[in-house]
């Protein structure tokens, strides 16, 4: 909301304001370990990236940590991921089950980082609908798509939505589409995707509804604030679910995908 307010004000002032690139000195700070891990419901390969923070300005080549030990555990046992030697670690063909708790342990250079979470249940997409709109401030003329699904009333649900329209992706880190059921718990949710603009006749539209847990949702909100900060909150690192101050997060995603073609 604040972003919009500031955007409008800046827009109005753009007639007299000016921009230029300035030099900024990076602040001093300890290097931190960064762990990105996403476990998908069902049988998939499980990929983990371990690295160290690097510069923000100038040369920002990532610094991988290649000698870490990465272990995924659940009630059925411990599984060590294979290392590719370049900071990427993988476990092939792992079946992740809804309702089960998973623990990820990353050990490197004497430091140990642990995160755990329960794989959520998949919430299926009921339908994808669409409606024609005339051109407006929000979009060109075309079809505004809408995702429709039934939110389970018994649980707190957190969603991330990604959309692909004719091969163009929406809902990545820059444009996170996040929804929680706080205002809508137990209802049939019909969420119009104004944010992606209007699709055109005969476009292929694929939508993915990903359920995640509260910790991951909080992390994604933090990432959204970080990337789209504008003049907003005091800069803060997104709170992930690893201990010992590791950056990044152990995401547990349960997704459903549906595709349609827009028939005018």
């Amino acid at each position: 909301m604040k972003k919009i307010i500031f955007a409008i004000s800046i827009l109005a002032l753009s007639t007299v304001s000016c921009r230029k690139i300035i030099d900024i000195e990076q602040e001093d700070g300890d290097k931190r370990t960064v762990i990105e891990a996403t476990l998908l419901e069902g049988t998939n390969s499980f990929d983990v990236k371990v690295s160290e923070t690097t510069n923000f300005f100038g040369d920002n080549t990532p610094v991988p940590i290649t000698n870490a030990t990465v272990v995924l555990s659940d009630s059925s046992g411990n599984y060590t991921l294979a290392s590719f030697g370049d900071g990427n670690y993988q476990l092939v063909g792992f079946n992740a089950v809804s309702g089960r708790e998973y623990t990820l342990t990353v050990t490197e250079n004497g430091n140990s980082f642990v995160a755990k979470g329960v794989m959520p249940a998949v919430v299926p997409i009921d339908t994808i609908s669409y409606e024609f709109v005339e051109a407006s401030t929000f979009s060109d003329s075309g079809y505004i798509t809408q995702i429709e699904f039934n939110d389970p009333g018994a649980t707190e649900n957190y969603y991330r939505i990604e959309v692909d329209v004719q091969g163009i992706n929406y809902g990545d880190i820059f444009n996170l589409i996040l929804l929680n059921d706080g205002f809508l718990n137990g209802n049939r949710i019909e969420f119009p995707l104004f944010a992606i603009g209007a699709a055109q006749a005969f476009d292929n539209v694929t939508m993915k509804l990903t359920s995640c847990d509260k910790a991951t949702f909080t992390y994604l909100e933090g990432v959204d604030a970080l990337i789209n900060a504008g003049n907003g909150a005091p800069p803060a690192n997104p709170t992930g679910n690893f201990n010992n101050d590791a950056l990044g997060n152990f995401n547990l995603y349960a997704s459903d995908t549906k595709s349609i073609t827009i028939i005018p």
Binding site: D28, G29, R32, V34, T53, F56, I173, P235, G248
Partner: peptide, 23 residues
């Protein structure tokens, strides 16, 4: 507060902050 470093999330460069108001 300016960044003390950077890292990547889903391939995107993001800042990492440690102190507060040190710049």
């Amino acid at each position: 507060t300016y960044p003390s470093g950077g890292y990547q999330i889903e391939g995107v460069n993001v800042p990492y902050y440690s102190g507060r108001n040190q710049s």
